[in-house]
Design a protein around this nucleic acid. Sequence first.
DNA 1: TAGAACTCGGATAAAGACTGTCCGAGATCA
DNA 2: TGATCTCGGACAGTCTTTATCCGAGTTCTA
Lengths: 168, 168
Amino acid sequence: MSELDRLVIMKLSNGVEWALHSCVTLSQSREPVPAARLAELHGTPPAYLAKHLQALSRAGIVRSRAGQVGGYELTRPAAQISALEVVRAIDGDGPAYRCTEIRQRGPLAVPAERCERPCAIARAMAAAEDAWADALRRVTIADLAARIDADSEGTAMAAVSRWLAATR
Amino acid sequence: MSELDRLVIMKLSNGVEWALHSCVTLSQSREPVPAARLAELHGTPPAYLAKHLQALSRAGIVRSRAGQVGGYELTRPAAQISALEVVRAIDGDGPAYRCTEIRQRGPLAVPAERCERPCAIARAMAAAEDAWADALRRVTIADLAARIDADSEGTAMAAVSRWLAATR
DNA sequence: TAGAACTCGGATAAAGACTGTCCGAGATCA
DNA sequence: TGATCTCGGACAGTCTTTATCCGAGTTCTA
């Protein structure tokens, strides 16, 4: 691992990237897509990607179908799925900053009855995370698909649809 | 570990909380405060807190003084130190989301020469992190100290100053 | 000026999380 | 009814985080 990567500590699971790309891909298919197909398209370990897709399934973002024509498909239109939902499904929906209430410890401990409100530090950290969540809440899978398509001058999504149809 | 903590994945190092509280405490002292004293006040493991204080020292937020009257002190007025600086010093200054360029892999790989711009997904994630950072950049250590003092009806910071002076 | 005590700093182990993989249960189609 | 394909949860390896210790340097005191 490079020295530059070492500086990255508040890290999101790598699976977040795979899950977002998978959702964009699924938005281009009307039929279920097997996990192995998604893994091949994205160049990721098949079994590990399947694990993350299971998390999306538990979160109600995708639906799984078993059997010969099975696979994963979105449960809702892509315009109704926010990036925040996907990130939280993979990476957990709890706050990144956890206040352990150290103000209630030590020689100057504050009595519990005066700690109804969260600590001022916890409030500031929570406000920052709210800003982060709001930014992701405003972006939908449909938005991401449209932007990726625009970056490729309108060829990327069509190519995905073709590939999915051709390899089934 | 409780089941609730398991849902928290995009986590910040626990030391972020200690570092922020330590900076607030240091803002109330004109003389250096030893790491062991800070650990006692906050009820944290002394050796581990010292490790985080070293990170603050490397980041130029605090200055260390060795010897009998040594300890840590802020290098600047608390109003000139943002919460973001402290968080980045402890938790790393890199982005939480790392794009591994999976668009350049697989059967539909995009040629490298057409990937000058970051992926649309990476752009969305970066925008969210910028919003998070901006929120923390606007809060200074002096702001946090003032809010904590207000929460205690103006008694907390005075108590800290008294305790620091009495135990030296 | 020499000694002693106190401080920081980096190097050193243990625990937990993420990464990666496998095989069994269930469902669909022929 | 059988065979094939799929998902789903259970099973190790590696890495980061947590926690701790002792040595190097500095300051005060005698």
